[in-house]
Design a binder for these strands. Structure first.
Lengths: 146, 146
DNA sequence: GTAAAATTCTATTAAAACGATAGAATATGT
DNA sequence: ACATATTCTATCGTTTTAATAGAATTTTAC
């Protein structure tokens, strides 16, 4: 499940994507426009900033803006920052691998193989789509014969 | 993220799949074999039974067994029972749809469109794979030109 | 019909994660 | 100096997660 934190973050990022090049946007404005609790949004934007994909300016005339072009910011990156790894299980994560405690040998674990497929499919979508994409159904699943 | 509950449940179900036709298996045995806390496993198996995919027998010679053939039990069904809907966000769930509180109009929501793709990709994998599958990479992602 | 073996039920618990809020501190522009 | 914004630190209540405990019930075997 995508947390509210990530959902709010994505909303804000897409908004800033549309506003790209038109100067900084206030937290208060983003919160209002996207129906996000302002104080909560502050923390989220700060986290995104600390991870380098947002730029901010304090004081009058300040606010938030994307640190690079919308077509260079992947949705997957935002989700990973706010919700952690995409993988449904740590032992198939590429960015945060961790062995399962209870699993004897990883090589033969059916669950691992299945979840690896899920991870790969999700990552293919999320790491391909950027803030500039008006998302279309650009992916199809090919079910090969068994 | 897949919960431990779902992971344990899947482990047990795969085990029972391999043991299919050879009579009931004890909770204690499953717990031992798969390194799962026994008391926790009890609850999990009970939940799977109440959802009709496990059969149990009390008393001596009792235990758990699959209520149908392994090739008829989908991994997606097990995950849904134990962890709820596959969709990363409720507004794209086919089994448990719910409107987002903060979302004005669903039709134009970019996040929704992306997460719908993720849901569909995950569901395609999980609802295709059964307990009988020695999972192979049967799916590929076709990235169409944009 | 009693004992042993097993699942079933109900309740509780500790810890972590989630969602959100509060207030003070700091930086910036005029 | 003042108003405007972000930044920082702390806290809080609720829910979920992971697990445990113990009594109740069903079944088989003798």
């Amino acid at each position: 499940m995508l947390s509210k934190k990530a959902k709010y973050g994505l909303k804000a990022m897409f908004y800033l994507g549309k506003h790209y090049g038109k100067g900084p946007v206030l937290i208060a404005h983003l919160a209002e426009e996207e129906n996000i609790p302002k104080k909560f949004l502050e923390l989220i934007l700060l986290e995104l900033k600390k991870n380098g994909i947002l730029h901010s300016k304090m004081g009058k005339g300040g606010g938030y803006s994307l640190s690079k072009s919308p077509d260079e910011i992947k949705v997957g990156q935002i989700v990973r920052i706010l919700d952690g790894p995409l993988a449904p299980i740590a032992c198939v994560s590429k960015t945060a691998y961790r062995k399962c405690d209870e699993c004897e040998n990883e090589k033969t674990c059916e669950i691992r193989k299945i979840m690896m497929q899920v991870r790969d499919a999700s990552a293919a979508i999320l790491d391909h789509t950027t803030l500039a994409d008006a998302p279309k159904a650009i992916f199809t699943i090919n079910r090969k014969s068994r």
